[in-house]
Amino acid sequence: MAHDLPVELSDAVAVLGAFPVLAGANLTVQRGEIVLLRGPNGAGKTTLLRLCAGLIELERGRGRVLGHDLSTDRWAVRHRVGLLGHANGLYPDLTVTENVAFWGRTVGASDAEIAAALKRMALDGRLAEVQVSRLSAGQRRRTALAALVARRAELWLLDEPHAGLDAAGRDELDEVLRQAARAGATIMVASHELERAGTLATRQVEVVAGQVRDLGATS
């Protein structure tokens, strides 16, 4: 469904416990965009990402992700998005290849697709057979992103992806995300590192008190 918008939220309300974390959020994201979500702690950025990943319920309002209704079809959403939070979602005892292959196989990826994902993240060399527990923070992040590629994620939802990375690792990550967007992925990034993420993003939105305000395209 190539014509479906990656994200369409209209008056979306999401509740954690009794507290409405998203209180009537409106957001539309176009295919291939890199959207920076900015805002203070507790504003609802992570909840917005998890809502788009189909991990939490849409309490009220309307929401569609990649053409699937968030109220009735959250399972279908999950198959097509990749959520990378503060953690990498990797198994430290497995090697880079084993991790990427495992996540790829969950959606039926072929050996060739897994090899391509490793190559795209420059993990097909000597790092391929190294256990994840022995990797640097940047290399782990790259492995996690390779897993998203192998899982054929069309919408990448990244929560503070630069956290824990040194300057070189951050540059490397930004380049990987730009490449992914050029290859057709849509990316939403929640970040406090406005200067860095601002240069990466094609558009910025501000999340404040559960509301989303469009700040427009970045120059």
Partner: peptide, 17 residues
């Protein structure tokens, strides 16, 4: 513990498996 130590459980939830 192996699923929750590095957030793999969330990945499993969104994997569609």
């Amino acid at each position: 513990a192996v699923e929750s130590s590095d957030g793999a459980l969330d990945q499993l939830r969104t994997s569609g498996a």
